[in-house]
Every structure is written in C-alpha cells, then in structure tokens.
C-alpha cells in the first residue's frame, strides 16, 4: 500500500556561522513519490536531507509532515546512510534488530519482521554474518533491510549507492527501484549521479551551488518499474540535467580547490 505521507520544507534557510548553505528552499516530497535532490558538491543536499528528517535544525523555515502514518510504522522518518552506519560488533540480524529494539514489538514479532526484511533484501543466508564479512553492496542491503524493518512513512536516502563500485551500484539501483516501487513509500533521495536521479525520481530538484537554492524541479511521470537505463527520453533528460548542473559543478569544484 502506498504511503499517504507527504513531507514539506518551507522557506528553509540554513547557515553555519557566516556561511550560508541553503537559502529559501521550499520543496515537497509527495505521498508515495520519490523526490531526488541533485546539485553540485557543497550545495547543501545532505544538509537539506538532514533538515527534512529532523536530524538538523534549520536556521529558519519549517518542516511539515502531512498524512496518516501506517499502523505498523515504528519510525516515520527513516534514513539509509551513505556509509551504511552498521554496528561492526553486531550481526546482520543484530543490526536490523537494533531499529526494532525498544519499540512496541515483542521478541517473536521482532524476529518475524527481521526474517521478512532479510528475505526481501536477499540476506537470509547472511543473517549471522558480521558487517566486515560482507561486500559493500551487501552492507548497504543491510542498511536497507534495517530501514524497511520499521515500515517507514518516508525513506530518506543520502547517496546510498555512492560508496559502491559501478557494477554493484547498477545492480543495487535496480533493486532499489523495485523495492521503492513495490512499497510505495514516500522517499527523498540525495545523489550526485544523474542516472540514479532519472531512474528513481518522480521529481528531481536541481539545487544551485552554495548557497543552495532550488534552480529547477523536473517532473518524471513514468512509473519507476517501466524505466530502463537505455530509455532515450531518460538519457535525454539526464543530459539536460547535466547541462543545468555542469557550470555550477565546475565552479563549485574550482571553489573547493581554492578552499
């Protein structure tokens, strides 16, 4: 069942001391859709995701969540992290369990939910493995399993594939697309990779270089499951997004070199 929760930031402005990172940002992640944030390095994408998820207090502006959260949801706003954020001393099942400990679920219900998400992410055989025994792709699957275990209303993903090699990224992107489409969860996805953006996004918000402002919002109405990496219109869209970002990305790169 698709999530009926939408998440909206309004008039968000954020600064670290004198450094303005985000300015006048108003964006909405619509219910059951994926909002992708793209932009040059340092434009404040991850900062904005932190503000969306309540992990960072914006200097000014508001974040609102509308809609009914599902009855089995244990953590409405749930992150998938770029560096996986797995506890190295816990097994795969233990890492998933962490998200369920201290919730209203009793132990049998917790175990059932762990088994379910491990099956969903192809990790059943690895339930007792430690993170160090897994490849990068498998570790991120654990991160996804952990996030899905709490039945989130909104999934917040901070460059979840960027720490992986190209082949693993392509494979996991297909799985992501399938999981997101099937679960119908509302999602906000930060990425540098424009191919990921056009494969997953219903809306792609292009941020300008620092201070990050919304430069353009591109809407893609085709179903995620119908999108293929070689679709000519997606390839064209990716190219047009790159044209939007290219100049800013080069300027941001030069800025960072001088920093």
């Amino acid at each position: 069942m698709a999530s009926s929760v939408r998440l909206r930031v309004e008039g968000v402005h954020h600064a670290y001391s004198d450094l303005i990172v985000l300015d006048a940002i108003s964006l909405t992640a619509e219910a059951g859709e994926v909002l992708v944030l793209v932009g040059p390095s340092g434009c404040g994408k991850s900062t904005l995701l932190g503000i969306f998820g309540g992990m960072l207090a914006a200097t000014s502006g508001t974040v609102r969540m509308d809609g009914a959260v599902g009855p089995d949801c244990l953590n409405p706003l749930t992150y998938v992290f770029q560096d996986f954020a797995l506890l190295p001393w816990r097994s795969v099942a233990g890492n998933v369990s962490l998200a369920l400990e201290g919730t209203r679920l009793d132990k049998p219900a917790r175990n059932a939910r762990i088994a379910e998400v491990l099956a969903l992410t192809g990790l059943t055989k690895f339930r007792d493995a430690l993170p160090k025994q897994l490849s990068g792709g498998m570790r991120q699957r654990v991160g996804i399993a952990r996030a899905l275990a709490v039945r989130p209303a909104v999934l917040l993903m901070d460059e979840p594939l960027s720490a992986l090699d190209g082949q693993t990224r392509d494979l996991l992107l297909d799985e992501f697309a399938s999981l997101i489409a099937r679960s119908g969860v509302t999602a906000i996805y930060v990425t540098h990779n424009l191919n990921e953006a056009v494969r997953l996004g219903h809306q792609v918000a292009v941020l300008s270089r620092r201070p990050g402002r919304v430069r353009e919002i591109v809407r893609i109405d085709r179903s995620i499951m119908e999108r293929r990496p070689t679709d000519p219109d997606l390839v064209a869209l990716e190219a047009s997004l790159w044209r939007l970002i290219r100049e800013d990305a080069a300027a941001a790169d030069r800025e960072m070199d001088h920093a």
């Binding site: 244990l74 953590n75 706003l77 992150y79 954020a85 962490l98």
Partner: peptide
C-alpha cells in the same frame, strides 16, 4: 563514529540505549 550515534538517534533510540548499544 558520530555517524553511528546519529543512526541510533534517527531510529528513535533512547539516550540510554545509544550509550549501552
């Protein structure tokens, strides 16, 4: 890692649970 602590907070773990776990 502050990332692990933020992860715990993002999943709504209590302060005591974050310290212990």
């Amino acid at each position: 890692s502050r990332g692990l602590i933020r992860m715990g907070q993002s999943f709504g773990l209590s302060r005591a649970a974050i310290i212990c776990k």
